[in-house]
């Protein structure tokens, strides 16, 4: 299980992570909400030549959620066999979204 605190525009309903100062619709009126649903991996890569300060292989992915038109970039830190289309939980860990399997795993 997991939840991710995201920012939602009160005017157009679009969700953001990381947060913005002004929505593309022009509004500056946002609220925060816990996203308590798994997303689905849209694409992923394993980076063998990461920037300074990161250990290879580094796995990153973009997951898509059904609410607020939200997609989020995050990391796959655990030793999971995840592929495109898999359902994942997203949680924030030290300022980075981390994905873990939502099916066949614990606490669905």
């Amino acid at each position: 299980m997991g939840s991710l605190r995201i920012q939602v525009c009160r005017s157009c309903g679009r969700g953001y992570y990381p947060p913005k100062i002004r929505c593309s619709c022009g509004s500056r009126d946002f609220y925060e909400v816990e996203l308590r649903e798994p997303g689905r991996i849209v694409t992923l890569t394993t980076i063998y030549v990461p920037p300074i300060g990161f250990e290879p292989p580094l796995r990153v992915a973009i997951a898509e959620f059904s609410k607020h038109g939200l997609k989020v970039l995050g990391r796959i830190d655990g030793d999971y066999d995840l592929k495109v289309g898999d359902r994942v939980w997203a949680v924030e860990n030290n300022g980075v979204v981390v994905f873990s399997p939502a099916e066949g795993g614990e606490g669905e």
Binding site: Y17, P18, T43, L44, I47, V60, V84, G95, V96
Partner: peptide, 25 residues
């Protein structure tokens, strides 16, 4: 690159990899 995106370890070349995977699929 946006500060959050950088924290994940992504770079412009690895964005190209994410997009290539998506296109291939």
């Amino acid at each position: 690159v946006n500060e959050y995106e950088r924290r994940t370890g992504i770079t412009l070349p690895s964005y190209a990899a994410l997009i290539a995977r998506h296109y291939m699929d």
